[in-house]
Simulated assay, not measured.
Amino acid sequence: MQQERVALVTGATSGIGVEIARQLAERGFRVVVSGRSAERGREVEESLGERVRFVRAELTAEGAASRLVADAVAAFGRLDVLVNNAAIDHTGDLLEVGEDEIRSTFETNTFAAMNLLIAAARRMRDQGDGGAIINITSRLASIGVPTMGIYSASKGAMLAFTRAAAIDLAQYGIRVNAVAPGMTRTPLYQEWLDGLPDPEAEAERVAAAIPMGRIAEPADVAAVVSFLASPEAAYLTGTSIPVEGGYLAK
């Protein structure tokens, strides 16, 4: 009897991460969701049902990657898919950015994700039957946007790491790909919008800049992640799929 596949999704207590976990569970995965908030994590666990287990994790702590992988395996017995979704935002005048801001952005968005990829890949290698790793990057990994330089660089590093890791890990049957969302309707987006003088006008301006005329929904991003985690994507590795309504094609 074939074992059920197990996925680990980081940053999965809100927004895109919750929807990724939902779609993977609906596809038959057992899913470990992680995040920093135990309260939100338990809510996600309860709302998504018995196929989902929450594990609290502070990914920037020393040894966190190995502990989280071990916890995922302890929960469901194996690990087949990692979705590196956890990240923090950063905006600000580039000439006013301090060293601590750069360091904290890279510690979460880049270093923690790299460590987790390596820890998960070691487990997948030892299991001997391959796996899939999906790094959530950003359209900003490929373009320049004012005030977003540090965030863009942290995601650009993950895009480069995705391609390099795909080459290193192909010998073990481990596929490594990236999904690059554009502006997406998440709680963080709504919080940003609500803080503006004219949220409605800004929402219209953002949508008008996208060829498809709307921003992404979390389900749009999650659908691509679910595909990359599936056997249908068995011959895809080292690629990045933009989910941004045609913005980068302009």
Rank of each mutant, 00 (worst) to 15 (best):
A7I: 03
V9R: 03
V9A: 06
T10D: 02
T10K: 03
G11A: 09
T13N: 08
T13E: 03
G17H: 07
R22Q: 15
A25G: 14
E26A: 15
E26V: 13
G28M: 10
V31P: 10
G35M: 09
S37A: 09
R40G: 06
G41M: 02
R42P: 04
E43H: 06
E45I: 10
E50S: 14
R53D: 04
F54I: 07
E62Q: 01
A64D: 00
A70Y: 08
V73S: 01
A75D: 08
A75T: 14
F76W: 05
R78P: 13
L82I: 02
N85I: 10
A87Y: 04
H90K: 03
G92Y: 04
L94Y: 11
G98M: 00
G98P: 02
T105F: 04
E107V: 09
T108D: 02
T110P: 06
F111S: 12
N115V: 00
I118V: 14
A120V: 07
M124T: 10
M124I: 07
D126K: 03
G131T: 11
I134S: 08
I134K: 09
N135C: 11
N135K: 07
I136L: 13
A141T: 04
S142E: 15
S142L: 11
I143K: 08
P146H: 06
T147Y: 05
I150A: 11
I150T: 12
Y151K: 11
S152F: 01
K155E: 05
M158Y: 10
T162W: 07
A164T: 15
A166P: 12
A170Y: 08
A170W: 00
A170Q: 03
A170S: 12
Q171N: 13
Y172W: 11
G173A: 10
V176E: 04
V176N: 05
V179H: 14
A180R: 11
P181Y: 07
G182L: 02
M183I: 13
M183Y: 04
T186K: 12
E191N: 05
E191G: 09
E191F: 06
G195C: 03
G195P: 12
P197V: 08
P199V: 02
E200P: 14
E202C: 01
E202T: 13
A207K: 13
I210G: 04
I210Y: 01
P211N: 11
P211M: 05
M212F: 14
G213A: 13
G213T: 13
P218C: 03
A222M: 03
A223Y: 04
V224E: 07
F227I: 06
E232Y: 09
A233W: 02
A233V: 10
A233K: 07
A234S: 15
Y235K: 06
S240L: 10
S240H: 08
I241S: 02
I241L: 11
I241V: 15
A249V: 06
